Computed example of a mutant assay.
Amino acid sequence: MKLILLVEDEPELADTLVDGLETHGYRVHHTEDAEEALVQTAVHRYDAMIVDWMLPGMNGPELIQELREKDYVAPALMLTVRDSIEDRVHGLESGADDYLTKPFSFEELLARVRALLRRPSEWSALDELRIGPLHIDTATRKVAIEDAPVELRKKEFDLLRLLVERAPAVVSRTMIAERVWGSEYVSDNAIDVTISGLRHNIQDAQEEKENIRLETVRGVGYRLHAE
């Protein structure tokens, strides 16, 4: 039975979500603030998290960002009334995997949770991935090109991992949305920002070399090229 952490300070909404998720066979731990969520994540390994943006004290993006910095990788669905492109990008860049704007139907939330829960099983079980001079340690989430470390955000790491697993094949934007965010409902801007950030960090780690390149295949997608 999958275990879900719900961080939501609206009692009526929280009760509705807990009842609905448990009716569909999930176990749910509910907390009303980020500080208690940090305590719970130190004890439990959740299969997914549902986090409200507006929380007392530390907000949702801050909570998720702190968890990602601690290498807590459970996929997270952000709930919020904010619906601008800037807010969506900020939420996703904090480490959230998907974004759902209030008000929403329970059926849509359930579909997105199911999509998040499908994602981890699709990753390779290998602890190490290599392509040319690039090395990924999937257990520690560390990346290096030759001996130079590559500093990546969570989404950039997940995207790189996908590209390495699929190399030399081209990876479509649809696959990136489904595998990296766990949902097809991802803005083009969020994907573009992540692609740009990954490309920039790869280039920085190589100084003036181009042994590893993130290539755009126009009209098709992206692929990782290694020499």
Rank of each mutant, 00 (worst) to 15 (best):
E22R: 14
R173K: 09
I145H: 08
E86A: 14
E66V: 14
D15A: 12
I64D: 00
E184Y: 12
A34C: 11
L116T: 04
P149R: 01
H90L: 07
L198S: 11
L152Y: 01
D52T: 10
I212E: 02
G219S: 10
L79V: 03
E207H: 13
L77P: 07
L152I: 05
L198D: 02
H225G: 08
L129P: 01
I136W: 05
A177M: 03
Y46R: 07
K209L: 09
R141G: 14
T41S: 01
V220P: 02
L129V: 09
L116A: 04
A115Y: 04
A190K: 02
Q203Y: 08
L79F: 04
D19E: 06
R179S: 10
I136L: 15
L67I: 06
T216A: 15
G197A: 09
D15H: 10
H135L: 12
L17V: 13
I85V: 12
L6Y: 01
M58P: 00
V18Q: 08
I4S: 00
L100Q: 06
L109T: 02
I195P: 00
V51K: 02
R179D: 14
Y72I: 01
R68L: 10
V150G: 07
G57R: 13
Q206A: 01
N201P: 07
E128N: 15
V89I: 14
Y72D: 06
E8S: 04
R68F: 12
I85F: 06
A177T: 05
L17C: 10
P75E: 09
R45A: 13
R153S: 07
T194Y: 01
T23I: 07
E146G: 10
R161Q: 05
Y46F: 15
K209N: 15
F104K: 06
R88G: 00
D9H: 08
F106L: 12
H200R: 09
D192A: 15
K70M: 15
A14D: 00
P149M: 04
E128M: 09
L13R: 11
V180R: 10
R153G: 09
S172W: 02
W53C: 00
P168L: 14
L126N: 13
D192L: 14
F106W: 14
G25S: 08
R114C: 08
L214W: 10
F157H: 00
T194D: 11
L224I: 10
I212Q: 01
A177V: 02
L67P: 10
M1W: 12
L116I: 07
A96W: 04
D52N: 11
D15W: 11
L110W: 11
E108D: 15
L116V: 04
R114Y: 06
I145W: 01
A34Y: 03
F157W: 05
V143Y: 02
A139N: 06
E12M: 13
V89E: 15
M78H: 03
E8K: 01
S84I: 05
L198T: 04
R118D: 08
G91V: 05
M58E: 03
